[in-house]
């Protein structure tokens, strides 16, 4: 048994154990923390599978952002979301046993399917490798996301915007267009304020690097956008910058800039024969332009998703 195998097996067991603990946790907050741990472990598993792009997305969005959204939701519930503490009633057990049974069934089906896969299944990899030279980038993941199957990514970014519309639609009439999120109480000379001024310098650099590196290494708009969103949220929490009013036209333009740029270039491609097609020779430039706009829009959308429902005047 090699060391790598021992590591992989322990990782698998750990993931399963943490998933089980998250599902069985009595307390909402405990379950969320375990869910975040689960996401981070899953990211390590993706690294072990050599899928660095997926690992970055899982760590940033699956564990980080989703965990943050869940913590925010639990805080808004204020304990009301916790199950009643009065013993293990049959209904409560059923409420946990039924989803658990469903998950076990789904997992078993997946195991059967994966084991039934042919050993040597190259999938679309040869096709991507064959045509990647024309895609304008050398990272196959970016080539697929922004060129070969651009409409998937386009629809994903639109789904994000729709999610934010869903959150905003919960706004009471009197607060419509006001500032989202709680009022921040960071002391101007405190540790958080210092961190909020220190982090952007490095965070912006990391985001720009992820965006630029996406062309020929793991990275891209989603990862860069998430880093940008995280930095922005710290800056807002630290009181360095105020949260914007959701009625601000600049904010709304920023939110739609990415999908709009994507659609715009797509329409240009349509004029040339293929919707979402890139002009020959200039694919790298258009991909980079779209990814830059997407990064800004994704960052704004994710940040505002976390800040939540508008609830206080500017």
């Amino acid at each position: 048994m090699t060391a790598a195998l021992v590591f992989d097996l322990s990782l698998c067991l750990l993931i399963a154990a943490v998933a089980l603990a998250a599902v069985l946790a009595d307390d909402l907050f405990t379950a969320i923390v375990l869910f975040i741990v689960y996401g981070l472990l899953a990211a390590i598993a993706w690294v072990r599978l050599d899928a660095i792009d997926v690992a970055l997305a899982e760590a940033a969005i699956g564990a980080g952002l989703t965990g943050l959204l869940l913590v925010g939701a639990a805080a808004r519930l204020g304990g009301r979301g916790a199950p009643p503490a009065a013993g293990r009633t049959p209904w409560r057990l059923l409420g946990k046993a039924a989803p658990a049974a469903l998950c076990v069934a789904a997992a078993a089906a997946l195991v059967v399917l994966v084991l039934a896969l042919p050993d040597d299944a190259p999938g679309l990899r040869p096709l991507v490798a064959e045509t990647i030279a024309a895609s304008g980038v050398t990272n196959p993941v970016t080539a697929v996301l922004l060129n070969f199957r651009g409409y998937d990514t386009l629809l994903e970014t639109i789904v994000l915007a729709v999610a934010l519309v869903g959150v905003w639609s919960l706004t009471p009439d009197r607060d419509w267009g006001s500032v989202p999120g709680a009022r921040q109480h960071a002391r101007p000379d405190g540790v958080l304020a210092t961190f909020g001024r220190l982090l952007p310098a490095l965070g912006l650099l990391v985001a720009a690097h992820l965006l630029w590196a996406g062309a020929d290494a793991p990275g891209g708009a989603f990862q860069a956008g998430t880093v940008l969103a995280a930095v922005w949220l710290v800056v807002v929490m630290a009181g360095v910058l105020p949260a914007p009013a959701t009625a601000d036209t600049r904010v709304r333009l920023l939110l739609v800039a990415g999908p709009a740029a994507f659609l715009g270039f797509g329409a240009v491609g349509a004029a040339g024969g293929v919707f979402l097609g890139h002009p020959a020779g200039a694919a790298k430039a258009t991909i980079l332009a779209i990814e830059t706009a997407l990064t800004l829009s994704i960052a704004a959308t994710l940040g505002l998703l976390v800040l939540g429902v508008p609830r206080r005047p500017a």
Binding site: G190, V191, L192, T194, F195, L198, L199, L202
Partner: peptide, 17 residues
């Protein structure tokens, strides 16, 4: 080294909070 420094800064801030 940068990862380590970032983790230290974040940990110091969060533990203070």
């Amino acid at each position: 080294v940068l990862v380590w420094l970032l983790a230290i800064f974040a940990a110091a801030t969060v533990s203070q909070l």
